[in-house]
Design a protein around this nucleic acid. Structure first.
Lengths: 229, 229
DNA sequence: CCGCATCCTCATGGATACTG
DNA sequence: CAGTATCCATGAGGATGCGG
């Protein structure tokens, strides 16, 4: 009992810095993945639980509670259940998340064997990786993967994605495995190369025209060896 | 001993998603703050320790090691000591961090009593919050805060910041407390308002001209009450 | 001094069971 | 369906030690 002040557990970083305060809100484990799930639209509690694939239910409940009190997530008691959705401020996390997705592109060149994949995640990833791509006149491209259709609406303003039903009739329907989509996304692979490898079926020329070689993002990746090796 | 596989601790999220893989690399506590420190330039181990203000030394060593093996951080054995610096890929985190700083702006309207502040952090924060601001002909604005000078170089391409010596001769030298700078940054306050409150001394007109009302970022902030209350 | 490694305590995360 | 409650393993935080 010599020391009066024992073990001050520092839940926040205690720094007068925007980044530190942002991390005080969304820096805890699972938080940004919860936001990613909700970017594609509101979800029920159990839908979140299954889509996040591995989160403990007490953690999910705790994270949703703190995100709600911070004003990132909104809890809507709707007909027959509870739905969680992003607040307008939470929607504002789309830009940082897209930037992180672009940064992570070099990490996606290796395939995801043994990893979970949900087409829902492409609603964040595809516009992030196709940033700067425009189309005039506007075009609608449907990407079918793992049984669901991601609808990409491309106009002069950029790319917008949403989950679509099968009877949504896009101009073009691509059928692609997730590894190809995110490998394309990686930018380390050229579109021509992927198409030549036969991974892409359907009207690939539209995508190739929209994403020509001279507009591919220059990417610099990890310089050291992967620590998982 | 009924269960053979006991407690698989899931160091990674195990998701085939760019965001999840990025968080596998930089999602652990302190990681992004380490990157923030190094964005203003290389630092020694003890400099990192004091600037981060609260990190345990074993954690800092561990984080630096994993960031190095992932290729985000580079360990340089220079004259008289060890310096840590960002790799080119690690430098690429500047864009996501700036986006997070912009998102966090509504969190910065309250002052930082009892919080640590380092002028070094402005090297990330000020360009982030002045994104879109240009100047022609180019201008150099020095911001003196807490005894150090942050040099803002503004040209047609945007704003670039770096730590400067006192004998760097900028076109304009502003003297401002950090609360004002990041309050300005917050965007919730207008520049005119802050200037009128007398918090800004020096040539404020230059900044006001560079950041007119019609170019201020629209901000939407947290909707619920702050949970710290 | 600088650059960590070790040790200990407590808080947090993770898996499962359980309940209105 | 939407979460609590509980237990245990790991991780964070702090002090200290120690070789260069």
């Amino acid at each position: 009992m010599v020391d009066v002040v024992k073990h001050h557990p520092m839940k926040t970083y205690g720094q007068f810095c925007g980044l530190a305060r942002a991390l005080d809100v969304i820096g805890d484990r699972w938080n940004l993945l919860i936001v990613r799930e909700l970017i594609a639209g509101p979800l029920r509690y159990t839908e979140l639980r299954t889509s996040l694939a591995g989160v403990a239910t007490n953690l999910l409940a705790d994270r949703l509670r703190t995100l709600e009190t911070f004003g990132v997530v909104e809890r809507r008691v709707a007909e027959g259940g509870v739905a969680y959705a992003l607040t307008p401020w939470g929607e504002g996390l789309r830009a940082p998340l897209e930037a992180l997705v672009r940064w992570s592109a070099p990490l996606m060149v290796t395939g995801g064997e043994g990893e979970v994949f949900r087409p829902r995640w492409l609603v964040l990833a595809l516009p992030a990786l196709l940033a700067g791509v425009t189309a005039s006149p506007p075009a609608v491209v449907g990407v079918e993967v793992a049984g669901t259709v991601v609808v990409l609406r491309v106009d002069a303003g950029g790319v917008h994605a949403e989950l679509g039903a099968e009877d949504d009739v896009p101009d073009t329907l691509l059928s692609a495995p997730p590894a190809m989509l995110l490998g394309l996304a990686a930018g380390a692979l050229g579109v021509d190369e992927v198409v030549a490898a036969g991974h892409l079926s359907g009207d690939a020329d539209a995508l190739r025209r929209a994403f020509p070689a001279e507009r591919r993002r220059p990417v610099c990746g990890p310089t050291a060896a992967d620590p998982s090796a």
